[in-house]
C-alpha cells in the first residue's frame, strides 16, 4: 500500500504483477461493456471455420484430417482482430500516457496486455474447439495435451502480438502492417501447435509433447524479449 513517494517499489515483482492484474481487470471490464469479442470476433472465428468447410468441399475426411491446422489458422486470424482491438482501446483517447505516467514499470503493461489477449483467445479457442468437434468431426484423444498446447501456444501468440502491435501503434497504417509483421513471426507457433494438436486429436502420428517444448521456448523467448524492450517501445520520441 505504498503511495507515490518515489520509492523504487515499482520494480518489485509484486508491484509488476499487481499492475498487470489491474490492467487485465480493466480490459475485461471494458470487454464486458463493449462485447467486441463476444459479438464480433467470436462469430468471425466460427465463420472462418465455415469458410474452410466450403473451400474444402465439405469433405468430412479431409476436414477431420486438417482440423488441427484449420483450427490454428482460425485462431491466428481472430488473434489479429483481438490484438488490434487491444491496442485500439488504448489509442482512442491517449490512455497510453496513463501507463507512461503511472508508477509501475513498463513490464507490467506488457504482461497485463499479454494476459488480456491470452484470456480472450483462450475463450475463443474453447468455442473453436467445440466448432472443430461438431463441424469437422475431430475427436479429442488427448485432452491434457490439447489444453496445455492451447495455453502455451496462445501465450506465444499473445506476447508476440503485444510486442509487434505496440511497436507500430503510433503509425497510421498499423492495421495493415500488423499482419505482415506478425504472421511470419508466428509461423513456428502455427507449425508447432498444429503438430501438437495433430497428436491431441489423433490425426498425426507424432509426439505432441515434443512440439509443446518448442512452443514453450517460443513463448518464453517473446515474454523475455518483450519485458526487455517494452519500455523503449512505449517511449514517444
Amino acid at each position: 500500500m505504498n503511495t507515490s513517494d518515489a520509492t523504487p517499489g515499482h520494480l518489485s515483482l509484486m508491484g509488476i504483477l499487481r499492475t498487470s492484474w489491474h490492467i487485465w481487470r480493466k480490459d475485461l471490464l471494458i470487454e464486458l461493456r463493449s462485447r467486441v469479442l463476444l459479438n464480433q470476433i467470436l462469430p468471425f472465428a466460427v465463420l472462418v471455420l465455415m469458410l474452410f468447410a466450403f473451400a474444402l468441399d465439405g469433405d468430412s475426411t479431409t476436414l477431420e484430417f486438417f482440423a488441427p491446422g484449420l483450427f490454428w489458422v482460425a485462431v491466428l486470424l481472430a488473434a489479429l482482430l483481438a490484438i488490434g482491438r487491444s491496442v485500439a482501446t488504448e489509442q482512442a483517447d491517449a490512455t497510453m500516457d496513463n501507463f507512461r505516467l503511472g508508477s509501475s514499470s513498463p513490464v507490467a503493461v506488457f504482461f497485463g496486455k499479454t494476459l488480456v489477449i491470452l484470456t480472450q483467445l483462450l475463450v475463443l479457442e474453447i468455442v473453436l474447439a467445440v466448432g472443430v468437434i461438431v463441424f469437422y468431426g475431430a475427436r479429442l484423444s488427448e485432452p491434457l495435451l490439447f489444453v496445455s498446447t492451447s495455453v502455451v501456444a496462445t501465450s506465444g501468440i499473445a506476447s508476440a502480438g503485444t510486442l509487434y502491435a505496440v511497436a507500430i501503434s503510433k503509425l497510421g497504417v498499423r492495421e495493415t502492417l500488423l499482419p505482415l509483421l506478425l504472421m511470419p513471426a508466428l509461423v513456428p507457433v502455427l507449425i508447432g501447435a498444429t503438430r501438437a494438436f495433430g497428436d491431441a486429436l489423433g490425426t498425426a502420428g507424432v509426439n505432441g509433447w515434443q512440439w509443446l517444448g518448442l512452443l514453450g521456448a517460443f513463448a518464453l523467448a517473446y515474454l523475455t524479449l518483450g519485458a526487455l524492450v517494452f519500455g523503449s517501445l512505449l517511449e514517444e520520441n
Binding site: A167, I168, K170, L171, G172, V173, L177, L180, L181, P184, E236, N237
Partner: peptide, 12 residues
C-alpha cells in the same frame, strides 16, 4: 519485407 515496410512509413 515487413521490416522495410515498417521503415518506409514516415514517423518520428
Amino acid at each position: 519485407v515487413g521490416y522495410l515496410a515498417f521503415r518506409s512509413v514516415p514517423s518520428e
